[in-house]
């Protein structure tokens, strides 16, 4: 949280009590109820600004100077939601140009991009400006995501913009670009799913499943320990576990990764799921797991996988033991 003390050009901050335009206002200190107010050293600027804010709030003064006051207060503490609320009332009452408000928000965002109030305010402004602002909003989220690729607020805002104002054209390639930068970016994987499911310009999950499986398999080959890509792969099939169990190519991916690394936890785990869904690997494939062991049935294979996972993923051993206990009932 930033506490602004000096102006950008280094000028001395002028107390409100010394500003002629505020001479008619009596500041109102925070009433903390029963809590004793022990006056110790903290920035007097901040306290004074808030005292004047409470004063204009109390008289509901919707003026230009109130607007400027909220600007200062927000720069000092962007978390105070009542200041934001009042700012919106003033903006509305004075009929201010909301395009200019976008600059203010972008400025505050530099140091407060994880602040709920800021993003809510941004959405309020964007909603008022309508579809014309969509490209600007996409650009703004890209700016924030460039420095914080998993910023939850930026992603939420972006999804809202797409749904409410449009701008889907380049969204899938935007996801691909982010994943190219960081294949582990779970937010980008989630956005990819969101686009495929919701974009009016695409044909939907069912018709894109094949090409997405291919995309995902390539991603897995690049980073076999990436939880996000494996989860996405499973998500593409939803409740259709039969199709998943029938997919030879996905089974092969698991074995390929295990041939490289016998302890690859996600591959062992995914293979276990596939076997539970009916996938039947060849005896030769099973030799990849352990050449010294003769695996004869699906049940034996699944039991073997659980036992391996209990060892290589020891922190979740109880989970794997539970999976093992279910196997006789699942695999006939």
């Amino acid at each position: 949280m930033q506490v602004g003390v000096e102006d950008d050009d280094g000028d001395r901050w002028i107390p409100f009590s010394e500003r002629s335009e505020w001479s008619d206002v009596q500041p109102v200190p925070q009433d903390d109820g029963p809590y004793p107010v022990v006056s110790i050293a903290y920035t007097s600027q901040f306290r004074e600004t808030m005292d004047y804010f409470r004063a204009v709030l109390a008289r509901d003064e919707r003026s230009d100077r109130s607007l400027e006051l909220t600007e200062e207060a927000i720069h000092m503490n962007a978390g105070n939601y009542t200041v934001w609320h009042f700012r919106r009332l003033v903006l509305e009452s004075l009929g201010k140009d909301l395009w200019k408000e976008l600059y203010f928000i972008q400025d505050v965002a530099k140091s407060n991009h994880k602040n709920y109030q800021l993003w809510h305010h941004r959405r309020w402004v964007a909603e008022k400006l309508g579809v014309a602002v969509a490209p600007e909003e996409l650009r703004f989220t890209e700016l924030v995501l460039a420095s914080d690729a998993k910023n939850y607020h930026a992603w939420s805002h972006r999804q809202w913009v797409l749904k409410a104002l449009g701008g889907w054209e380049a969204e899938l390639s935007f996801c691909s670009m982010l994943l190219q930068e960081d294949i582990y970016n779970n937010s980008a994987w989630n956005q990819r799913f969101f686009v495929i499911k919701n974009s009016p310009l695409l044909e939907g999950l069912d018709s894109m499943r094949e090409s997405e499986v291919e995309y995902c398999i390539n991603a897995i080959k690049l980073a076999p320990l990436n939880e996000s890509s494996w989860t996405y792969l499973r998500g593409l099939f939803g409740n259709d576990t039969k199709s998943l169990g029938d997919s030879q190519s996905i089974g092969q991916v698991c074995f390929e990764e295990l041939a490289r690394d016998r302890c690859c936890i996600p591959a062992l785990s995914f293979l276990l799921d596939l076997v539970c869904y009916g996938f039947q690997p060849t005896v030769d494939d099973c030799k990849i797991l352990d050449s010294s062991i003769e695996i004869l049935s699906s049940l034996q294979l699944a039991l073997y996988l659980c036992e391996r996972l209990e060892v290589v993923d020891a922190i979740r051993a109880c989970y794997w033991a539970w999976r093992r206990s279910l196997l006789p009932a699942i695999i006939k």
Partner: peptide
């Protein structure tokens, strides 16, 4: 924390 009145508690007075 009950009777603190430093900068940190000022910045969080709205979520008290």
């Amino acid at each position: 924390l009950d009777n603190k009145k430093d900068l940190e508690s000022l910045l969080t007075e709205h979520i008290r």
